[in-house]
Write a protein that binds this DNA or RNA. Structure first.
Lengths: 290, 290
DNA sequence: AGCTAGGGTCAGGAAAACTTAGCCATGCCT
DNA sequence: AGGCATGGCTAAGTTTTCCTGACCCTAGCT
């Protein structure tokens, strides 16, 4: 417990970053996830910082923490500074590695929408190296090192594909489905992240059927199961288009329900005209420019 | 030599800071001094960064380094970000330790001007803890953690005392000096940092005397020597005022030469009204407010 | 009670950072 | 030319930081 004031040395950068993340996210656990470390590491950083400052930044509560007045007063400026730093860092990377493009997207989109388009992209621009990171949620644009984010959203960014939902299944299974009510008698697959899909679609088509079936945490896995005839899946237009085109999945019912959001593409930072990121974005949005 | 692109992990903060300092100062040695580490540490940081980026940031030359185009393109934004970070850090400290005031100044000023004023300051505001750092040159205002900087300058900040120079010596020695020309026959002390003082004064009074004598790297030491009768020193008004008042030093010649600069006080960041830093600045500039 | 979420703590080990000491090339100064 | 100073590089070794993994603790649910 050093009571004497600490000498005039800089505060550790990593501790400041940990504090900022914790303050912004409101929880050590979330901060730890963002920084890619364990919560214990964040605890230690914040503790070290508080010890150096001789004042508490958080009030510890049984569940979770709350910023003290001091912490609150300090976060905003720190957040701005780290935002600026992340921007500078990203720009530095982009300048040093001008042929690298990093895309962040949902696992399902990565496998079912993006992946099928990559061969054409590679063929058209072999010098560009595209890497894809699957995330459960869109990254903080001011912080992420990704150049592009591709996520379902209602607005913002550039619309790449409208989303609409409708049941899909293997052709064999489709033969057993004549009316919407028949869905009650077959397994109805669902994705845990999109667990309201069935509800929404059934309501939209005015059907009152109780559907049930296994839930998957990976949409791509549910699609595979549907292909294998394991049941009927609520398809998302852009994600099952390929399977429908190849005929391995079919849509037994005509009603397609728009869900008011589409696949949208953002860039975290302005992309210089002609940069690799800008070209990839162009390709994803419109196909390769002629 | 990893040719494969590195995974999408953050660049190390400390390496970025080292690079930024090196780029801004133009030399690894200066950056090392600023960061308070050895040059080897900076070398290592920059090298690590370059390796991560797969591109050179500096061109190594026989003496010194030069930024590459990439380095040049990246510095500015990084500098801004680290400036912001330093600002946030300083504010955080100030909020956490509202009674601490850090002053940066020249060693001579610290000993001869500031130090004599501290007892009154402490008496008037005992709750404020003032710490003083002696630096050879004014710190970078956007970066330093000091609250106040007190340095000789021609403009800027708040003028605290005009500077003027004139010979001073012990009363005994003064008895042997009648005309300016007599200076040629006694040791004339000088400070290595202010080595043109004699030249300036002699030119201003229109004298053509060759003065010689020992040089000191610490002005306060030269003052002590002058008090001990070791020779005549070129006195700086604010710094010898105390000794003149006590009679341990006298000015054998009347001519005082203003040198166009004064002791000036800056604050690195805006000081909230009533803050400890603001009160100390007030005291130093005007004496304690009634 | 038992469970869960969110932190705190501690020991140990990995990685980063720093220092020291010596080396090298260049250019300035005699 | 020789000597010296400058500024950076390198290798070895050490200290410090950082992180993990395992476990404890508390409050609120069920």
């Amino acid at each position: 417990m050093p009571v004497a004031p600490p000498p005039l040395t800089r505060l550790p950068l990593n501790a400041l970053r940990a504090f900022e993340a914790a303050a912004r996210t409101g929880a050590f656990t979330l901060a730890a996830a963002e920084l890619g470390v364990t919560p214990g590491a964040v605890t230690a950083h914040v503790k070290a910082l508080e010890e150096r400052l001789g004042a508490a930044l958080f009030e510890r509560q049984a569940r979770g923490v709350r910023l003290t007045a001091l912490g609150l007063a300090a976060v905003e400026e720190l957040t701005g500074a780290f935002d600026a730093l992340a921007g500078a860092e990203a720009r530095l990377r982009a300048l040093a590695l001008p042929r690298e493009v990093h895309i962040a997207t949902l696992p399902a989109i990565a496998q079912l929408w993006l992946s099928p388009r990559l061969p054409a992209l590679r063929a058209a621009a072999p010098e560009i190296s595209v890497s894809i990171t699957a995330l459960e949620a869109p990254p903080n644009l001011k912080r992420s090192l990704h150049d592009l984010s591709l996520f379902p959203a209602e607005s913002g960014g550039r619309l790449v594909a409208e989303d609409e939902i409708f049941p899909v299944c293997s052709p064999a299974l489709a033969a057993r489905l004549e009316r919407v009510e028949d869905l009650g008698s077959v397994p109805c697959l669902s994705d845990t992240a999109w667990d309201r899909d069935w509800e929404v679609w059934l309501a939209a088509v005015g059907a009152k059927v109780a559907v049930r079936g296994p839930a998957f945490s990976l949409y791509a896995l549910a699609v595979e199961e549907a292909v294998n005839g394991a049941g009927v899946l609520m398809g998302h237009g852009p994600l099952v288009a390929g399977h429908l085109a190849r005929g391995v999945l079919v849509a037994p019912f005509a009603q397609r329900v728009p869900i008011g959001q589409g696949l949208r593409l953002w860039s975290a930072r302005p992309m210089p005209k002609g940069s690799a990121a800008a070209r990839v974005a162009e390709f994803l949005a419109y196909g390769w420019p002629t």
